[in-house]
Design a protein around this nucleic acid. Structure first.
Length: 571
DNA sequence: GCCGTTTTCGGCCCGACTGTTTTCAGTCG
């Protein structure tokens, strides 16, 4: 059983327990465990094979949940879930997903109106029967009706780059207001998660009203979801929700910390505060009623005995322990990147010519780059045969005679065929400076077949890099099934680099796999995979992703100087 | 259900907004 399946099972249990009115802390225990397992690098199955007791050492997993995980893996069943499912109609779980409906209302609606499906819920709402229930009224009824009708796309998370594009004009508008003293986009946006559910904008100001007014009257607003004195929510036409929070300047650091999250990180930090008899909230750090800090984020961390922790690490995945022990990583930065080792030209499916791509890279200040066009098996991309690569090699030589910088490595993105062999003969492969291998077809293999296919490609002595290792496209295509711990092991054994593909809809590897690869001693490489000069700039999203995977510059191959990088290729 | 430099029992982050209330419950983040 996959970790994600175990996590989903626990989430389901948590939902059902919540509806049953179980102890909220018990519900949270299941959610915490689900999270721990979902973000675990190693498959639980592997842990169980080695030593099942290690499970209990994971945060939030005690004797009971370790037992349930084991049982779930062994039998594929969880008696508690079966029992809860029998007692709870499915419609109640569906109702929980509707904004404005929590466990209490779901249960109330079910008890009083005997609503069994979402369809019946809609009928009841249209007939005005929801509004008659205690504690509910016309407004809640309307909210529920809208919630039922709402397309799932509305609540889907959007890639970070897309969210950035939607929110930039709004942020510019707010920054221009004279009342705004400071402004940050916080939340998962600031933590640089690969996707963003909503955008959290934080403002420091002594005059909240003017800012709130400007916010809700923004021309791109489709709907005002909430409007208070210091807190407003809107839905933009793009479907993206934006929340605004306004705090006084002396609270800004505490608010920035609180609003950046993640929630589990905040809970952990506040708990540290409680132990020191401090109360930490978005207004500051308090001892009794006296505010003793909160103007900066550093003060919040300092109050609980920690150094400042970069937002990308704030997921309560060990960053607090690392901070306490003085072993926070010095995260890789965009400025550390000296080269870009996967890009395409108009010889295959790129837009710009070789000369244009090289010139754009020179302007970015890169020391070295690689041109890596597709091979013939990737027909849709106009992949080249060896003759095409020979011709391109001569063109690169000619170009380098005119301008020596950046150094242009001759490369290819070689297709990994069904059986794990490569789409060019060994002699041609041997002539490249760098070979990037990747999968573009037959995504529907079993996990075992796909893992064998990739491992075989990694065993090829001419392969330097495995590109976009899981093939996923955010929101469009699931990753193909693959045993990443096997891939990481093979990459380590054969000295192959694993790529962090910086395309905003790939960001492949994800943060958890990056951390797993890094801990195994595998060298990572961040490539733009640009198909036009403009796309070279997406490198920064790859760097964000690397930072979320705790990467320092030394973990990333293309932060090295040219000579060191070439040595790595030769090795 | 987890967890312990307060504890093996009794805690568990903290506050804003909304609607429907006559002081608060529910939901959300």
């Amino acid at each position: 059983m996959e970790n994600i399946q175990i996590a989903r099972t626990f989430e389901e249990v948590a939902d059902l327990l919540e509806i049953q009115g179980a102890n909220p802390f018990r519900v949270r225990a299941y959610r915490n465990a689900a999270r721990t397992i979902a973000t675990l690098g190693t498959p639980v199955e592997t842990i169980l094979k080695k030593n099942g007791h290690v499970l209990e050492e994971l945060p939030g997993i005690g004797a009971d949940l370790a037992g349930k995980v084991t049982k779930l893996c062994r039998t594929g069943q969880l008696p508690l879930l079966a029992q809860l499912t029998r007692k709870t109609p499915e419609s109640l779980v569906a109702m929980l997903r509707i904004p404005g409906v929590g466990p209490k209302r779901a249960k109330l609606i079910y008890r009083k109106l005997h609503v069994k499906t979402l369809g019946e819920l809609e009928q009841a709402a249209r007939a005005g029967r929801l509004a008659e229930l205690r504690g509910m009224g016309k407004t809640v009824e309307q909210m529920i009706l809208r919630g039922i009708g709402q397309d799932k796309a509305h609540v889907a998370r959007v890639p970070l780059a897309e969210a950035e594009a939607y929110v930039r004009p709004l942020v510019e508008r707010l920054r221009a207001l004279p009342e705004v003293e400071e402004l940050d986009v916080a939340g998962s946006f600031r933590r640089r998660r690969e996707t963003v559910g909503d955008v959290d904008i934080l403002v420091a100001s002594g005059r909240a009203a003017a800012i709130a007014a400007s916010f809700v009257s923004y021309s791109d607003v489709q709907e005002v979801l909430a409007r208070g004195e210091t807190k407003c929510s809107i839905r933009l036409r793009s479907g993206l929700q934006a929340d605004l929070r306004i705090v006084p300047r002396e609270s800004y650091g505490a608010a920035l910390h609180y609003f950046t999250g993640s929630k589990p990180h905040n809970i952990a930090v506040r708990l540290l505060g409680v132990k020191r008899r401090l109360k930490i909230n978005e207004y500051g750090i308090f001892r009794g009623n006296r505010q003793i800090g909160g103007r900066t984020e550093e003060e919040v961390f300092k109050a609980v005995g920690l150094p400042w922790i970069p937002p990308e690490l704030r997921e309560n995945r060990g960053e607090i322990e690392a901070a306490r022990e003085g072993r926070l990583p010095a995260l890789v930065e965009v400025a550390d990147i000296r080269g870009d080792l996967q890009m395409h030209t108009d010889a295959t499916d790129g837009t710009h010519t070789l000369a244009e791509m090289v010139e754009a890279c020179r302007k970015r200040g890169y020391e070295y780059i690689a041109i890596t066009d597709h091979t013939k098996a990737v027909r849709v991309a106009g992949g080249m045969t060896k003759a095409g690569f020979h011709k391109q090699a001569r063109a690169i030589d000619a170009l380098q005679k005119r301008a020596a910088k950046p150094v242009v490595f001759k490369g290819a993105e070689v297709d990994i065929l069904d059986d794990g062999s490569l789409d060019l003969d060994d002699e041609t492969l041997a002539a490249f400076d760098i070979v990037v291998a990747s999968i573009h077809s037959r995504f529907n293999m079993t996990k075992l077949e796909m893992t064998r296919r990739i491992v075989r490609a990694l065993q090829h002595p001419r392969v330097h890099v495995l590109a976009h290792p899981t093939g996923r496209l955010l929101g469009k295509r699931e990753p193909y099934p693959v045993d990443m711990s096997e891939i990481v092991k093979a990459a380590r054994d054969h000295g192959v680099m694993l790529e962090i593909n910086a395309q905003p809809d790939r960001l492949d590897l994800n943060d958890v796999y990056i951390q797993m690869a890094r801990e195994a001693g595998v060298t990572l490489i961040i490539n733009s995979d640009a198909h036009r000069t403009q796309e070279l700039g997406c490198m920064r999203y790859g760097v964000d992703q690397a930072r979320r995977g705790w990467c320092e510059a030394k973990d990333v191959a293309n932060t090295r100087r040219q000579a060191a990088f070439e040595k790595l290729l030769k090795k």
